[in-house]
Amino acid sequence: MSGWKRDLPIGLVVLAALIAAPAFGLPRFWITTVTVFFIWATVVSQWNLVFGVAGIFSLAQMAIFAIGGYTTAMMGLYLEWSLWLALPVSGLLAVVFGAVVGLACLRLTGAYVALLTLAIAYILFLLIVTDTDCVYYEGTVCRSLTEGWKGLGRYGDYGFRDLFGRDFHLGNYGLALAVLTLATLFSFAIVRSPMGLAFRALRDNPGYAVSRGVSRFKYQLLVFALSAFFTGLAGSVYAGVFSVIGPNVLQLGLLLFLLSMMVVGGVGRPWGPLIGAALLMLVDETLKEEAFAGYRNIGLGLILAAVVVLLPQGLAGGIDNLARRLARRGGGAPGE
């Protein structure tokens, strides 16, 4: 397929550059920032499968992420498992959670799905921040199951400190990059698979596709569950990298930030999440500067709104259109 012929080389070059970057003296601050980028890009790439490809307007993505993160933290803290062991378990629990959410959404459409999933995420948030019942005491200090607003900590990390010493952040970088690479390959595979085509059919003409025997039920559940796996892994990596996880991952501001990445990149486009996440991270770093103090969320909110109104296909869509127009002007370039 011509898509792979174009995308695979680009992907390999990008991957090679990212692997080589630390060796060429990328400063420590940027390595951490890019690690965060890897984590968000993973989440957005999977969200893009649910929203952009399968057409399910779910806002439960960060709830799934939180399930992954909290699972890892609790296994480390209460069961004293190695985080490497907790990693796949977090992914699998996220799948179970994703499947349940998917089941609840199946009879609904559009805005109702958004409301339902937002409600689910918000319940999780409320239950965590109001969680003050002591499950055990440390001396006289009361500890609750999720530690409420403070979040969980002291459950260890992925062991890169013992392995690399001062350069432990390189381990985090590598792990996050590995998860992102797998998640991106997975999302490309889904988009290009017969299942991806079935989704396009469902989205573009639901009535026709259903009458031709494409089962919305089966495919939606499948995509919900599968995309939840990598989202859960991303949550687990996040927990390990920051050594703390709290209800802030469920806050609306972050959800909006990730939604902006998807929308700015281009909903439903396989490259969209990567482009959008990279750009939004850059914008975010800029808005964090002293001069813009207090305007970060105002800026993000307006950017999101403006992109949907002015560029509904996102940047990836815009680039595609531009390339097609250039190719046409070039008098039917080969391969078109």
Binding site: A111, I303, A305
Partner: peptide
């Protein structure tokens, strides 16, 4: 795609306005 898009747009405006009030 109005139903989904307007949801996102008003979501963005809401966060911007909320932070404007904060400011």
């Amino acid at each position: 795609a109005f139903e989904n898009n307007i949801f996102i747009v008003t979501f963005g405006l809401a966060i911007a306005l909320e932070n404007g009030i904060l400011k």
